[in-house]
Structures are given as C-alpha cells and as structure tokens.
Simulated assay, not measured.
Amino acid sequence: MTEITWEEPYCGEGNNCFRIGTDDEGNGFIAVLGKEDRYLTDSREALQQMIRDIKAGAADHLL
C-alpha cells in the first residue's frame, strides 16, 4: 500500500476540511479530514470529484 504524507488540513469556518498529500513517487492525493482512507488520486476522476464538492459547497473555502 502507498504511504501518503498528508499536509495540514485546509478548513473553512463551518465547512468540511480537506487534506492534500503526496507519496514517495510524487503522486498527489486529496481526502476529507478524518476519511483519509477514502482518498482520491491526481486523476481526471479526482478533479471531477473536487469540482462536484466545490459546487456542493463542501470546499468553497479552497477557492
């Protein structure tokens, strides 16, 4: 299994917190704080999911 190094969470007042991480090979990952075991990788699907989350208001503090 890939060992991911997570950065400090990005949080907004009253919003979900997201974490961004990388592995030893330089791949990128994003997850909701507390659900790091259900991460997305730096793929088209990850970008689509992030856009859906932003539209739903879950990540508006990242804009």
Rank of each mutant, 00 (worst) to 15 (best):
Y10K: 10
N27S: 14
A31V: 12
F29N: 01
Q48T: 07
R52F: 06
D37L: 05
N27Q: 09
A46T: 03
R38V: 02
L47T: 13
Y39T: 00
I20Q: 03
E45D: 10
G34W: 00
Q49F: 04
A31T: 02
G14A: 01
T2N: 08
G14V: 05
T5W: 04
L40P: 03
L33T: 10
T2R: 14
D60V: 10
G21S: 03
S43D: 12
W6A: 01
I20C: 00
L63C: 07
R44G: 08
D42C: 10
I30A: 07
A31E: 02
G14M: 03
I20Y: 14
C17Y: 04
F18V: 11
K35R: 13
R52W: 12
F29W: 04
L40G: 09
D53H: 15
G12K: 07
T2A: 00
N16S: 03
T5P: 01
N16T: 10
S43E: 07
E3G: 05
L33C: 07
E7V: 00
I51L: 14
Q49I: 09
E13K: 11
A56R: 12
D60H: 08
L40N: 11
L47G: 14
L40W: 15
I54S: 02
E45T: 15
E45I: 09
S43P: 07
I20K: 09
V32W: 11
I51K: 15
E36D: 14
I30T: 08
I20G: 09
R38P: 04
I54K: 10
G26H: 02
A56W: 00
Y10W: 11
R44P: 03
A58D: 13
D53N: 14
